[in-house]
Simulated scan of single mutants.
Amino acid sequence: MLRVNNIVKQYASHLALDDVSLEVEQGKIFGLLGPNGAGKTSLIRIITQITAPDSGEVIFNGQRLNANHIAQIGYLPEERGLYKKMEIGEQVLYLARLKGLTTAEATKRIRYWFEKLEMESWWHKKVEDLSKGMQQKVQFVATILHEPELIILDEPFSGFDPVNADIIKNEILELNKKGATFIFSTHRMESVEELCDNIALIHRSKKILDGSVLDIKEKYRNNTYWVEFDGDYNPELTADIFEVLQKDTLRGKTILKVRLMAGKTANQLLSALLPIVNIHRLDEVIPTMNDIFIDQVKQEN
């Protein structure tokens, strides 16, 4: 759906984006990751045509990005932008009309979403009367109301308690099942694990990692395991199979974090330990997206 080609963006002496390219597939949830100041918001503002790149191009559904595409994009910015003195219902209606909906159709969709998200009593409330999480719900509805093909969410769970964060997460997944494509910018790596099909990691204005979440996690597997057992254990007997990275004792059981030697397998690990101890647990340590994020940023630094 979206192809970003060699985007460069500079603000005075600050290079915000340095030759960044990426592709967002139709119907996928794409995670745009990076530390604060990495360039994520600058890229989002170019995709939403708030600003323009100094060089490079954005292709949307096979066409160079242009003003006609605005109606096909929904954008929830990190900086909240509701009018504090305006009634909620009228405000969402106004924003929907800006996206091309008739008053009748917009009102129908607003009532549907307000009922679905338990916001029926909010119509005549003002933004200043709502909590941060309640305001976030209003902006989420305003973002998706015109049923855009591409939905861009910048830190969408900010301000939500766990219950409402779960509600919005499920709505994102439901919209995705119906065909909506998402760009999802966040610092919450657990959300990336739960939601994203593909990611790109931007650091210091450059893209330093991209690909499918499953492929990236597979690439970063490093033959590390947790082993829990009881019995006498002599590390010299297994020194050619694995190295011990960490050792703990809990309720009489030994817990080891081990890394297999090159060419060794989990079966060989078990074969070495079974004759001398009683094994209670063997778990592979799969790197989380948070682990990978931190590792990549540290390497770049």
Results as ranks from 00 to 15, higher is better:
Asn290Ala: 14
Lys116Thr: 07
Gly27Asn: 06
Lys219Ile: 07
Gln26Met: 11
Lys125Thr: 09
His69Arg: 02
Ile199Thr: 04
Leu65Ile: 02
Trp226Val: 10
Lys99Thr: 07
His187Val: 00
Pro35Lys: 00
Gly159His: 01
Thr288Leu: 04
Glu128Ser: 12
Pro156Ala: 03
Glu218Asn: 15
Leu209Val: 02
Trp226Met: 08
Leu101Ser: 07
Gly27Ala: 10
Thr41Tyr: 02
Asp19Gln: 06
Gly31Met: 05
Ser121Met: 12
Leu260Lys: 10
Arg64Ser: 09
Asp129Val: 04
Val213Tyr: 02
Asn36His: 03
Ser212Asn: 04
Gly39Tyr: 04
Ile279Glu: 02
Asp197Val: 01
Gln10Lys: 12
Val163Phe: 12
Leu98Ile: 12
Glu90Trp: 10
Leu145Arg: 06
Asn290Cys: 07
Glu155Ser: 03
Thr288Phe: 05
Met134Arg: 08
Glu79Asp: 14
Val258Thr: 08
Arg188Lys: 13
Leu269Lys: 01
Leu175Glu: 11
Ile199Lys: 04
Leu32Trp: 00
Asn170Glu: 15
Leu209Trp: 01
Ala96Arg: 09
Asp215Val: 05
His187Trp: 00
Glu90Tyr: 13
Gln63Lys: 09
Ala266Glu: 15
Ser42Pro: 03
Gln63Glu: 15
Asn290Ile: 05
Glu118Leu: 12
Leu95Gln: 14
Glu174Gly: 08
Gly263Gln: 08
Lys264His: 14
Lys126Asp: 09
Val297Tyr: 15
Asp210Thr: 01
Lys99Pro: 13
Val8Trp: 15
Thr224Val: 14
Asp230Leu: 07
Ala96Tyr: 14
Phe30Gln: 00
Ile199Phe: 05
